[in-house]
Amino acid sequence: MTGRDDVILEFLAENNVALNKRGLEINLRAEGFDISYSTIKRRLPKLEEAGLLEIVDESGPWYRVTDRGEEYLAGDADLRDDPEPDG
């Protein structure tokens, strides 16, 4: 996990939204976060693979935080036993 992963997860969870990669980039930039599209494009599939995000619509795809992602953000999920998504 990277610090940018946390920013992505927190943004989606706090705003209770599902966004595609470009929508996430635009909204994060509007909130003052400097996370490039290429980073978002690389990290979202890794977060999905870790079970922290899910695709809710394939036409983008559109991502939202899972219950496991919410648990991770709350400090209740232990990811140490899981294979770490590639950085």
Rank of each mutant, 00 (worst) to 15 (best):
E10D: 13
P85R: 03
I35T: 03
L53R: 01
L24D: 01
N15A: 04
L28T: 09
L44N: 03
R64A: 13
K46Y: 06
G3P: 00
T39R: 04
P83Q: 04
D67K: 14
N16G: 08
A74H: 09
K21M: 13
E31C: 13
I40Q: 00
E31H: 11
L52M: 10
D81H: 14
D76V: 09
E25L: 15
A18F: 06
G60C: 11
A30H: 03
E54S: 12
V65H: 02
N27R: 05
I55Y: 04
T39C: 10
E25N: 13
A77D: 09
F33T: 02
K46L: 12
T39M: 07
R43Y: 12
E70C: 11
L19G: 02
K21W: 00
E25D: 00
F11N: 03
I35L: 07
E58P: 09
V56M: 04
P83G: 12
D86T: 14
D78G: 08
R42V: 08
D5T: 10
S36E: 02
E48Y: 10
R42L: 09
E49W: 14
E25S: 14
D5E: 05
G60P: 08
E58D: 08
V7H: 02
K41H: 06
D81G: 15
N16Q: 07
E84R: 14
F11K: 00
P61V: 08
Y72L: 07
L28Y: 01
K41I: 10
R68I: 14
G69Q: 04
D81E: 05
K46E: 15
W62D: 00
L79I: 12
R4E: 04
L79S: 10
R29M: 07
R42P: 00
T2M: 06
D82L: 13
R68W: 11
T66C: 02
A74V: 07
D34T: 13
E14L: 06
R29F: 12
D57Q: 08
E25V: 13
V65E: 00
N16E: 15
L73I: 10
E48T: 14
P85L: 03
V65D: 03
I55M: 01
D6V: 14
L79P: 06
L19W: 04
S38M: 11
A50E: 02
L53K: 00
R29D: 13
D86I: 13
E71Q: 15
T66L: 06
I35A: 10
D81R: 06
D78M: 05
L24R: 03
R42D: 05
E14K: 03
V17T: 09
G32D: 01
R42K: 13
R80H: 12
L52A: 00
I8D: 02
K46F: 04
N15Q: 13
E54L: 07
E48P: 07
D5H: 03
E54C: 05
S36T: 15
N27G: 14
A30V: 11
A50D: 07
R29E: 08
N16F: 11
R29G: 14
P85N: 03
G3A: 04
E84V: 14
D78A: 06
I8H: 01
L53W: 03
S38A: 05
V56C: 00
D57G: 12
L24G: 06
K21E: 12
L52H: 05
N15M: 10
G32F: 05
P45T: 05
P83W: 11
L52V: 12
E49H: 12
N27T: 06
V65Y: 08
G60R: 07
A77E: 13
L73C: 10
A50H: 02
A18D: 01
L12Y: 00
